[in-house]
């Protein structure tokens, strides 16, 4: 069945969009990431104008993360206090990122450099996680139980403005999580992505937060980012397609629901292994996009319809 999208100004296959959004929602609910970095390229691939794709994915991420947040909240796997700290850092980082983005556009040519360094960052984190989690899986198979949280407390926990996060069972300075959230918000705004998949490894490795709590807390922050993005896109570019967004939400929330349930039975080390693979695949996609010779060097970039 085909449905006409009033803002994208084209019809889409309802079943195809539902299937895509359910798959991405599943990954989102399982790993506590927004999934925009997967959904947006898929939509552009089926012909949705990029501006509409980016803007209409935002409400879907909001819907999927609402489901995830509620599911984790009910299981008490959400650190509200840590979530609010991350949110505060994220807001500041996003604002700086938007300012930087506008300055960068005037200079030009910086975008590929940022994309490449971002891919390098993803690749490094993904590679590190892959090695670490494969070792953990092997050790677990040999009978030894190793929890990365058991390693000595990092020194930055002792910085000033210490706060107790009972849900996450840590007591640390709020400066590091604020800084990490700000950095992710900054990168996210520059590249037009949420950055949830950077928050998750940071929470696991830098702050020793239990995996179960990481997912709920990350989704909590993503929920607010996604609502802000929806309002921002709707008010400035008018490119949120409500029909497309509803199709995406419908598939996304059900996918996220099953993802959250599947994630419950996933062990910490296999969780990190799978997330590492997602990060590496994303990095590979960014690099391939730029390195492989395009079959068609020309592209139509922008088409403003005249009155």
């Amino acid at each position: 069945m085909e449905f006409y999208l009033p803002i994208a100004e084209m019809p889409v296959h309802v079943g195809l969009v539902l299937a895509m959004s359910a798959a991405v929602g599943f990954i989102s609910g399982m790993f506590g990431i927004g999934g925009g970095f997967l959904m947006t390229p898929l939509l552009i691939f089926i012909g949705i104008p990029p501006a509409v794709a980016v803007a209409s994915v935002a409400p879907q991420i909001a819907a999927a993360s609402t489901t995830g947040v509620l599911a984790h909240w009910r299981r008490r796997a959400l650190d509200l206090r840590l979530g609010l700290v991350l949110l505060a850092g994220g807001v500041v980082g996003t604002l700086l990122g938007v300012l930087f983005f506008n300055a960068m556009r005037r200079v030009g040519r910086l975008e590929p450099i940022i994309t490449l360094s971002y891919a390098a960052l993803l690749g490094t984190i993904g590679g590190f996680m892959l090695v670490e989690s494969v070792r953990a899986v092997l050790r677990a198979r040999n009978g030894a139980v190793v929890d990365p949280r058991r390693r000595p407390r990092p020194r930055w926990f002792g910085l000033p403005f210490r706060m107790r996060f009972p849900q996450s069972k840590v007591h640390m300075s709020v400066i590091p999580p604020l800084a990490v959230a700000a950095a992710v918000g900054f990168v996210g705004a520059v590249l037009g992505i949420g950055g949830g998949f950077l928050v998750v490894p940071a929470l696991i490795y830098l702050f020793r937060i239990p995996t179960a709590v990481v997912v709920g807390t990350s989704l909590f922050q993503i929920l607010f980012t996604a609502i802000a993005a929806t309002l921002f896109h709707a008010a400035t570019n008018h490119s949120v397609d409500l029909i497309l967004a509803m199709l995406l939400m419908f598939g996304g929330v059900f996918g996220a629901q099953f993802g959250a349930q599947a994630g419950k039975s996933l062990k910490g080390d296999s969780f990190r292994l799978l997330l590492a693979l997602i990060l590496l695949a994303t990095a590979a996609r960014f690099v391939l996009d730029m390195v492989v010779e395009p079959r068609e060097p020309f592209s139509i970039m922008l088409s403003e319809v005249l009155p």
């Binding site: 409400p59 993360s65 609502i227 309002l231 509803m246």
Partner: peptide
């Protein structure tokens, strides 16, 4: 759109 997202979720 945001309200709809929350309701859906």
């Amino acid at each position: 759109a945001s309200a709809l997202a929350l309701v859906f979720g």
